[in-house]
Design a protein around this nucleic acid. Structure first.
Lengths: 138, 138
DNA sequence: TATAATGTTATAATCTTTATAAATTTATTA
DNA sequence: TAATAAATTTATAAAGATTATAACATTATA
């Protein structure tokens, strides 16, 4: 267990982020759970373990993780920001019925985007919406 | 000019949306301008012509257009919702420097998404971020 | 024309995010 | 180790976007 804590501390230290307990817990939450949580999800779950946790800390930490590329924003919802610790290229599917978000493989770099040849591309996101298999059955 | 107004009225009527003056002006704005405007952009420009326009009407109308597929949401920003009357498949590029949004061609249907074969896909969005050619020069 | 249905407006309420300053914790130095 | 400085967290206020509500206006129908 302490080895895992050390793992999160190391990830933070590599990016020159001081590994405070709050930061380790937030990073752990993102890595262990793969639910693409909102700020509220993270806050409401972690407050049980960290009773003095402030929502501002969650916002600050997530922004720090994003800047250092330890997490990415999932903007599939425009009314709430979700976060994902899996930073490699993949797409996100949102079920309109149950609200779950699924990862899917997609070779984003294979897209032919001739019209962007003079643009500097920093980030690529692919978002699909629809109904997931479980909800389709019901 | 009246022919154009009739064009917007017809588009609305086709979807069984009563063509009020506000709705026609909002649809016209989206179709004529191709700037992927925010609710604020639309409201602040149209208030000049329609002094009694309410922001609630802009929200209501955009939601109606979206539901009837006369417009789509551009959720590339998660802090503000943009709208686009071009509903055919294409990608959106956002310049991090000047904030402009560019359309680009991308054959979204050619993506291999085996892992989604049991999903019902209703909408596909491709969002890129980076720096546009104009800002790169400066 | 009278009535009902629909659409618009103004305002309040809600929700998410950011800003600010005080309090706490951690690091540094004497 | 104690004192000081720096960084982090917290609580709260403020800002910005969106939704809800009810009154008012317009359009359609009888």
């Amino acid at each position: 267990m302490n080895q895992k804590i050390d793992e999160f501390a190391r990830k933070l230290a590599e990016k020159n982020i001081r590994p405070s307990y709050q930061r380790m817990k937030i990073l752990e939450y993102l890595i262990i759970k793969k639910t693409h949580p909102t700020v509220d999800n993270i806050f409401n779950d972690l407050i049980k373990e960290l009773p003095t946790l402030s929502k501002a800390t969650v916002y600050n930490t997530l922004d720090l993780l994003r800047k250092e590329k330890l997490a990415r924003v999932v903007a599939i919802e425009n009314n709430e920001t979700r976060y994902d610790a899996r930073v490699s290229n993949h797409g996100h599917f949102k079920c309109e019925t149950c609200g779950s978000i699924f990862d899917f493989e997609v070779d984003i770099d294979s897209f032919l985007t001739d019209s962007l040849k003079n643009f500097k591309i920093n980030e690529k996101n692919v978002y699909f919406n629809g109904i997931c298999p479980k909800c389709l059955k019901q």
